[in-house]
């Protein structure tokens, strides 16, 4: 158990920046168990990585609900108002055309485009908002220094603890990972 501590000290001496520690688990059930054990042990800055979302993980890790909906509703309202305003301004102010006696501001005829612009602005805000909330794109991450993390996208389940976590301790963290069934426990380094 002492080896991990020595390893960290050695690598710090070499000038590498220790970012945390990660372990691999066999299946979703083990990962879920490990996640709740880490939360109960007082860890906050830890994360789990799986090929698909795992049912109950938000409760096990105590993750707050996504705020994405608020971003989207704001953009949807702005898109709708903007779309309607564009049509009113173009049809009644910038280029007034009298077509078969219809009023310049023909609200009924403006409904389809207003609707499409609500959808378009919400769709872009969903995608951009989701990636922004997730801090993506981020091509360089300490987890990618783990030798078997590439399997996290298709058949392994990982738990990582950041070095900034007040509970992070080379020995204790490693032994808890091991106790919960973690394998391939490795120290993560920030990529240069």
């Amino acid at each position: 158990m002492e080896d991990s501590k020595e390893q960290i000290e050695e690598s710090r001496a070499e000038g590498k920046i220790v970012a945390g520690m990660a372990a691999s688990f066999e299946n979703p059930k083990e990962l879920l168990g490990a996640a709740s054990a880490f939360r109960k042990a007082g860890y906050q800055n830890f994360d789990t990585h799986s090929p698909f979302p795992i049912h109950g993980m938000d409760k096990a890790m105590d993750i707050h609900d996504s705020r994405l909906g608020w971003i989207v509703i704001t953009c949807a309202i702005l898109g709708g108002l903007g779309g309607y305003a564009l049509q009113v301004w173009a049809a009644a102010a910038a280029y007034p055309l009298l077509i078969s006696g219809k009023p310049y501001i023909s609200t009924e005829a403006f409904v389809p485009i207003t609707f499409e612009l609500i959808i378009l602005s919400s769709a872009f805000s969903v995608v951009i908002g989701m990636f922004m909330l997730n801090g993506l794109p981020k091509f360089s991450h300490s987890l990618f220094t783990h030798t078997s993390f590439y399997r996290a996208s298709y058949d392994r389940f990982f738990l990582s603890v950041a070095a900034e976590d007040p509970q992070f301790d080379a020995i204790k963290t490693k032994s808890l990972m091991k106790a919960m069934g973690g394998e391939a426990i490795e120290i993560l380094y920030d990529q240069p």
């Binding site: 979302p53 609900d65 996504s66 989701m130 997730n134 360089s140 991450h141 996290a152 996208s153």
Partner: peptide, 13 residues
């Protein structure tokens, strides 16, 4: 985009 299957990302995803 550097996707790493994080549970904190999956919830937004």
């Amino acid at each position: 985009l550097g996707w790493r299957g994080s549970a904190r990302h999956w919830i937004n995803y």
